[in-house]
Simulated scan of single mutants.
Amino acid sequence: MSVLIVIPSRYASSRYPGKPLAQLRGSTGEAKSLIQRSWEAAMQVDGADKVVVATDDTRIADAAEAFGAKVVMTATTCQNGTERCAEALAHVAGDYDIVVNLQGDAPLTPAWFIEDLVDGLKANPNADVATPVLNTSGAMLDDLLQDRREGRVGGTTAVFGTDNNALYFSKEVIPFTGQEYAPDAATPVFHHVGVYAYRPSALRAYMGWSMGPLEALEGLEQLRFLERGVQMLCVEVEAKGRQFWELNNPEDVPRIEQMLKDMGHP
């Protein structure tokens, strides 16, 4: 099965304008933009046939082309990364069986997260969309809860059934546990990793649907699938000792830079 990875990226962001061009320093002190580090993460994925950056902003396009990325220009009317991926697919030459949305704010995404995600979708022909979930440790859960206590929208959490099909996603921390956990202990909370794998037919259908009330309230694009009854597979991935966090707010920059240094990313 052929796989296309699309990195949707927009300059305008209510929480962090210009986020894709934010500079992040790694272990050597070299500064690279967020979009470059996300592209480098995508290039490490085994089995990907093509990687493109999809954007509506010439500043991002120029920066991406400067470090060697292929760029697809998309409309300013795209409401989220899924819509941008759908439009990019229409403009990219060739036929693909699976389209991966690696959001441009997740430079710490390990290659095996995406590889496991693609394998999960391949193994489940009834699923139209798949997304990774990461079992949180007590320390990660504390970070999520601290963000909410301080009024920041941090990571998204996911709940799913015994068949691993998604039940709901929220920017609140769900499910409620009311318990404290040791830093290294596993918890019942799963962090949603902002990556998706779609069958092209699901992407095309998505473009024809209007935003539903839950998507509008949460600001989570994947809820449009759930509101339409589309089966969405949650694929549990393993951290394998790696740290993971998305760049959602300016306050996340020091945290991600420290993680880059801890993991030896230049």
Rank of each mutant, 00 (worst) to 15 (best):
F169C: 03
G208F: 09
D163M: 06
G161D: 12
G178D: 09
V189G: 01
V237T: 05
V133I: 10
W112S: 10
A205S: 15
E236L: 08
P213H: 11
V133A: 15
E180Y: 15
V153F: 13
Q222M: 14
P183G: 07
N135H: 10
V153S: 14
L214C: 09
D128P: 01
T187R: 01
P132S: 05
Q146A: 13
V235R: 02
A197Y: 03
E238S: 13
G212T: 08
L121Q: 03
G120S: 14
R199C: 05
W112P: 00
G120L: 02
A111N: 06
K171R: 15
W112D: 13
L145I: 09
A205C: 12
E115M: 09
L233F: 06
G208N: 15
A182W: 09
L217V: 13
G178C: 07
R228K: 12
T187S: 04
T156Q: 11
G208H: 12
A111K: 07
E236Y: 08
L145F: 06
R199L: 07
M207S: 15
R228G: 06
A186M: 10
L203V: 07
E236M: 12
P200K: 04
V173I: 15
M207L: 14
N126M: 11
R148S: 09
L220R: 02
F190N: 05
V129E: 00
E238K: 14
A197G: 06
S170F: 04
R152K: 13
N135W: 06
A202G: 06
E150W: 09
R199P: 01
E150M: 14
E238R: 15
S170Y: 06
A166E: 03
H192A: 12
T136V: 14
Y198D: 00
L145Q: 12
M211K: 11
P213N: 09
F113K: 00
L217S: 13
P213L: 08
K171L: 08
A197Q: 02
P132I: 00
G178K: 07
T136R: 02
G151F: 04
F113P: 01
L217D: 12
G194L: 12
E221V: 11
